[in-house]
């Protein structure tokens, strides 16, 4: 298994960014890497599932509206294999009812787009510091 790891040999907290929007991909990658996290990219739902199962990221930042299978379906499949995998839904579907819907579907947290960079970092930080 290809575990994502830092250059110093210690295990680096790796975030799988699953988003079909290139701009969003670049933004997250830039922000998270700068904060010292490892970043993996998936451009649609199937890629996300594949990456999650094979590259074992520490957590997943998952968009919902993606070609093929959407983020929620991808999350369901991943959680079926790895129930403990932390998944944060990052979606431009940002009505109150959407938040409830995502949490009910098994999301560990929800990040509404557009987001403040500090919010993104705070959510990731929170999960990274979990025992």
């Amino acid at each position: 298994m290809a575990e994502a790891s830092g250059s110093n040999g210690t295990r680096v907290f790796t975030v799988l960014v699953a988003d079909d929007n290139e701009v969003a991909q670049r933004l997250c990658k830039r922000v998270l890497e700068k904060a010292g996290y490892g970043v993996l990219i998936a451009a649609d739902g199937l890629q996300a599932v594949d990456a999650a199962l094979h590259q074992k990221p520490s957590m997943i930042l998952m968009d919902v509206a993606m070609p093929g299978i959407d983020g929620l379906e991808a999350m369901r499949r991943i959680k079926a294999e790895i129930p403990a995998m932390p998944i944060v839904i990052a979606s431009a579907h940002s009505m109150a009812s959407d938040r409830e819907r995502f949490l009910a579907a098994g999301a560990d947290n929800v990040l509404s787009k557009p987001f403040r960079l500090a919010d993104l970092l705070s959510i990731v930080q929170q999960l990274a510091s979990r025992p």
Partner: peptide, 21 residues
């Protein structure tokens, strides 16, 4: 409305994030 807001927010994600950077 839901689609439009999604489209706008998606577009704004890049605008807001990169301008913040």
């Amino acid at each position: 409305l839901s689609i439009v807001s999604h489209e706008f927010r998606t577009a704004l994600t890049g605008i807001q994030g990169f301008s913040e950077l």
